[in-house]
């Protein structure tokens, strides 16, 4: 049974992304549990018992202002958040928001829920329910969230986002550290994920907003070769972020998460047509 599942899994194109995603999801879940155990005097050896705030690169982003003005971190944020922010930015400058598409456990969680959504609503209706005009405007809402979080954190010197963070709520729902606001947002995201792929990433994630900007100038770019493109729309259909890949030569959309699902290695049936490349071709 395990063998057949493995065969099925590895038959998928770019299965390795799913593997990496699952790895980070399990790692973060184990660390969250270990944190709770450590708080009560237990905990597993050889595994970090850090708070998830310390392992979230967005923590580094929100503390920039306080660090620049007072030399201190916002409460609950530590050097690790800062370092992860820099590493995340380095990856993003090279490849765009790969952190979102390959690492972020909350993105992975939404993708898993999308699998249920596809079964419930069918592949044609799932992820196509919001009118395009409305969707296009809503895609910029995450920049408002980002501005609000940065302003409120700077003004209050507290980790204000923790009050609404669905990622923290997901991995700490058993803990009294979770705010009611976080659980409510998590509930909304879970429900929305059954009809829209990655709703949090598309419309609200402030860290995705930061990383998304790098799509404008990333070193490796997603390029579509017009000469060999069959214009069958496979890349558009399989893009979790609903980007019209088939209408562009170079994907600079701020919503691209560099998941590579549109590439010729994955869904595009034409060889060497949609590729992640640096420099000329």
């Amino acid at each position: 049974m395990v063998k057949s599942w493995l065969q099925k899994f590895t038959r998928r194109k770019i299965w390795i992304r799913r593997l990496i995603q699952a790895f980070f999801f399990v790692l973060i879940a184990l660390i969250a549990v270990n944190h709770t155990l450590a708080e009560s005097g237990g905990g597993l050896p050889l595994l970090s018992s850090a708070s998830l705030h310390a392992l979230c690169p967005f923590g580094g982003v929100v503390t920039i202002y306080q660090y620049a003005t007072t030399g201190t971190f916002v409460q609950k944020i530590h050097e690790s958040s800062f370092i992860l922010m820099i590493l995340g930015l380095l990856l993003a400058v090279l490849f765009g928001p790969v952190f979102c598409g390959w690492v972020c456990p909350f993105g992975t969680f939404q993708e898993w829920l999308a699998g249920i959504g596809r079964k419930l609503f069918g592949k044609r209706r799932f992820n196509r329910l919001i009118p395009e005009k409305v969707d296009r405007v809503l895609r910029y809402a995450r920049y408002l969230v980002l501005a609000w979080v940065l302003y409120m954190t700077a003004a209050s010197a507290t980790l204000i986002f923790a009050e609404y963070d669905p990622y923290f709520a997901l991995f700490n729902f058993w803990s009294d550290e979770v705010a009611v606001g976080g659980l409510i947002v998590l509930g909304v995201v879970i429900a929305a994920s059954l009809v829209i792929e990655r709703p949090w990433c598309k419309y609200a994630c402030p860290y995705g907003a930061v990383l998304g900007i790098t799509n404008l100038f990333r070193v490796f770019q997603l390029r579509r070769r017009e000469a060999t493109c069959k214009l069958d729309g496979a890349c558009d259909i399989h893009c979790p972020m609903n980007i019209k890949v088939s209408e562009k030569k170079v994907i600079r959309d701020h919503q691209c998460i560099s998941c590579m699902e549109c590439t010729s290695e994955a869904r595009c049936p034409a060889a060497a047509t949609v590729e992640f490349v640096a420099g000329g071709r």
Binding site: K13, V98, E265, F276, A278
Partner: peptide
């Protein structure tokens, strides 16, 4: 060119 395995 970047492949999925090299990206991972």
């Amino acid at each position: 060119k970047m492949t999925s395995k090299s990206m991972a």
